[in-house]
Each structure stands twice: as structure tokens, then as C-alpha cells.
Amino acid sequence: MLLKIEHETRYNYDKPVQYGLQQLRLRPKERPGQRIVDWNIEIEGGALELSFEDQHCNHVDLINIERGRSEIIIRCTGEVENSDGSGVIGRHAGFAPLWYFKRASALTKPEDEIARLVASLDQDYEDDIVRLHALSAAVTDRVAYETGKTDAETTAEQALAIGGGVCQDHAHIFCAAARSLGFPARYVSGYLMMSDRVDQDATHAWAEAYVEHIGWVGFDISNGYSPDERYVRIATGLDYRDASPITGLRYGAGSEDMIVSLQVQQ
């Protein structure tokens, strides 16, 4: 499947920026089953300083915001060709070893809520894939998809206690619980072509767990199935902070507004 993506992020500042840097994780990963046909990033109000690969093999672009700017626009356009692997990514690669993905992060630290979720699972599943799908279903049973209840700093424990959240929260809870079960697990950010719309409000997030003799396997907890050819993997990490599309810092007083425009279509 050939997917066309147009993604624009616009930051408006109520006072001119004196100094600012942004890290962009907005270039899709090239891998078996996902081929980058064309990809371009344009910056208005800033300049590319350098590019590098982080420990998760994410492509990172470092952007310097032009001094005195009140607006910066980051525009991504491109085409990605995907094939359906039933969610199987395969062997582990990258600089971080597998044991690293059993670590708890600040957003995925397992405490009482995660322990209760894990304890609620049947211990007699026929194989690991069935167990992980059951975990995915248990997460959505406990945490309904609801916007406005959580934010980027909400932990897995907090989202479980609230009982509502978005794809980011579902992925964090799944990672925390899968690691508690002994599986290496990681957070994934990317794009999803939706069947009922072209225009979207944000990028998507899901999770992957490592299964012996199979490798990394994806689970879209929010939608209840494994990623197929409609998904474009952008970045991976222990949690949202590792795989966030844009992170940054700036000096100077004032606030900012962000407007996202995103289209994903065949």
C-alpha cells in the first residue's frame, strides 16, 4: 500500500523567541515492509543545525528557531510504501540491548494499578501472542478512549486510575504491564491511515513487545488489533518522551499555541 502524508505543525508565540531549539522525530524508519519513496521536511522560521540517529535508531533533526520569530512552521510531506506483516516487525536491531526495554521509565513505572491489571489476566494462555492480545484487550476494558482526561505528562498508573485516556496512555499502560510480565516492550509513534477520514488531529501511538522466536510484534491497543500496511512507524522508545514527534526548549517569556494539520491517505 502506498500512503501519502502531509503533516504541518505550526507554533505561534505571543512574544518573539530569543533562543529556541527543537528536536524533530518526523522521518519514517526504513525497514523490511516499510519503504520511504519520498520524504521532505520544510522549516519556516528556523534552520536545520544537524541530524543524527539516537539509541533507538530514530532519525532526529535538530532545528534552531530564528531569533525574534513569533511563528515557526514544520511541514512534512512524503510517500511511504508498506506491506502487511500482521504486526510482526521481526528481529531486534539498534544500539539499545533487549534488556533495556524491560526498564521502567517515569511514564511507565509499574505500581499498584499495573499490578492489579497484570494479576487480572489468565495465567494459562496457550502462547505469548495470545497473552499479549489479552493484555491489550484488558487495557481498553479498563481505560476507555476519551480525550481531555490526560496529557503528555500523565503516567500509566494515573491513566489507569482515571479510567480514560488516549492512544498514548494505552501504549504506556501496555508497555508497563508487558514489562511486568517479563517481555521487552517499547512505545511507537507514527501515522495511521483511518478508514473514515483523511484529516486527523494528531499522530498515532501504539506499542511493540518482543516475543521469543518471532521478534518485535506490534499492538494497537486503542483499536484492538496489530498494525498492518496502514501504519507508518516513525520513532520508538521506552515511552512518549523518547519517541515524541517534536520536543524542544526556548528562552524568553510568553506562551505558545500549537496547531496541527495532518492528512494520511492512499
Rank of each mutant, 00 (worst) to 15 (best):
W99C: 06
Y231Q: 05
P184A: 09
C175I: 03
F183M: 00
Q55H: 08
V130H: 05
A235F: 02
D127N: 14
R27G: 00
T247S: 11
D38L: 04
N58Y: 00
E157N: 07
V217Y: 04
T108P: 11
S83D: 15
T154Y: 01
E42Y: 05
R131K: 10
D199F: 10
A144R: 12
T203Q: 12
E44R: 10
C167A: 14
K109E: 11
G87H: 06
V80Y: 14
G248S: 06
Y240P: 01
A93C: 02
G164V: 09
R179F: 09
I162K: 05
A253D: 15
A134G: 14
S255H: 15
D61G: 08
I221Q: 01
S86R: 07
Q266Y: 07
I41F: 03
H172E: 10
K4H: 09
L262F: 12
I129Y: 10
I43K: 01
S195K: 11
L21H: 08
S222Y: 11
A161W: 09
T203F: 07
I162W: 04
I41S: 02
K29N: 04
D239V: 09
L249P: 04
T154H: 01
L249Y: 11
N58Q: 02
A176E: 06
R250F: 11
D151C: 08
F174K: 05
Q200P: 07
F95Y: 03
Q123T: 15
A152L: 14
V130F: 03
A171E: 15
I5E: 14
R142D: 01
Q23L: 14
A144N: 13
Q18S: 03
Y100N: 06
Q158E: 14
H172A: 08
A178N: 05
L62T: 12
F174L: 13
N12I: 14
G90V: 09
D112W: 11
N58W: 01
G164L: 03
R179G: 07
A96I: 12
S51H: 03
I246Q: 06
I246P: 03
R27L: 06
D14F: 05
T108G: 11
P110S: 07
E6N: 15
R179E: 10
E81Q: 15
N64P: 03
K102G: 08
I114N: 12
E146A: 13
Q263F: 10
H170I: 10
L98W: 10
E256T: 10
